[in-house]
Nucleic acid binder design. Sequence first.
DNA 1: TGTTTAATAGACCAAACGTTCTACATTGGA
DNA 2: TCCAATGTAGAACGTTTGGTCTATTAAACA
Lengths: 198, 198
Amino acid sequence: MRTSTRPTPAKDALLEAACSLFYTNGIRGTSIEIILERAGVARQSLYQHFESKDGLVAAFLNLRDERWCGWMNDFVAAASDDPLEQVFAIYDFLEDWFAQSDFSGCAFINTAAEYSNPEHPFHVLAARHKARVLGDIERLCKAAKLPEHKALAKQLALLMEGAIVTEQVTPGSGAAAEAKAIARILIQSRPQPTRSKK
Amino acid sequence: MRTSTRPTPAKDALLEAACSLFYTNGIRGTSIEIILERAGVARQSLYQHFESKDGLVAAFLNLRDERWCGWMNDFVAAASDDPLEQVFAIYDFLEDWFAQSDFSGCAFINTAAEYSNPEHPFHVLAARHKARVLGDIERLCKAAKLPEHKALAKQLALLMEGAIVTEQVTPGSGAAAEAKAIARILIQSRPQPTRSKK
DNA sequence: TGTTTAATAGACCAAACGTTCTACATTGGA
DNA sequence: TCCAATGTAGAACGTTTGGTCTATTAAACA
């Protein structure tokens, strides 16, 4: 057997350290050395559980995807019972996220930036994450009975990306509230749901 | 004298190579070695004209800022005589840019992602570029006599960022047209300029 | 003409990096 | 009790990286 598959203390510590360091310092900006130090784990343990740095990166991206989507969905679900309010709560979630001390933009945008080739495995994982988020937003729009919910979701997702990078490049710009305001206008200006149709 | 200051063939070749490589492969993803090879220039020539890799990076960022803003302003100016149409032309410019074969997102967003610390010199240059772009958009909005032109410009800039990263992570998503459509809605839903006021 | 100045080629260096290897300790079942 | 799994510490390896040093050439110019 080359690499273990079920979690162990060392593996967990490594993933946790990788998650934090890859996120804040980027992938190329984070050395194996620093990860080992942060995790308080022996060198060999890394290669016991991951076949290479790239393997650890992939694990980080998958974990981050799972966690981030969980955070957003949990926040939105807890924000209100009204499906329409849940849509707007997306941007309240962003505001919370931006206020976190270690906020460094979106891990997947950053990864796609570091690995520009769209066919690079890491870039593919980034695109997959964004597709998943878009799906979540579509679900919220549908639940709120908003007309053309898929088209609207694309717009709301674009606003989200805009808010994230604006806040990343220029912290304190209040981009989350800005995006929320735009979202409100977009939804208000929508054609009303035609309850006729046969 | 340590480093020359006026342009020379070798310096130009280096800057050109750096501009292209730093943009598409990122800063940490681009070695001095590859830059020298691409520029067809001797190793020593680099350190004759720039005090270090970081110096070359700074030169790249300044040049890129100058050029990109020039591209956008030229495009917009050439697009129409109508100031309002010029505002919308921002997103036509994006569409053109996205279609370029070497499109790799915004060099400054990418740089801010690679150097997450907002006080890092490169991050600062990124933020300064975005501030400059925002200023350009404000100018366009003001020329189009759009009410609350500064607040509107912030929204239009956010749409721009959203379009850029959406297209970067998921090429072919048509984010430029999407952003333009949202911009249209935003401008239409604005309060009309009150020509009364005293 | 002789002197800068910019350029070249390529050896060299120390550090960092990802990775492998060896040797040893702990621990929980079979 | 013994084995296998999981862990540790740390040396070592080959490569890459950013940067320096030396030596040489070619053109600009007073």
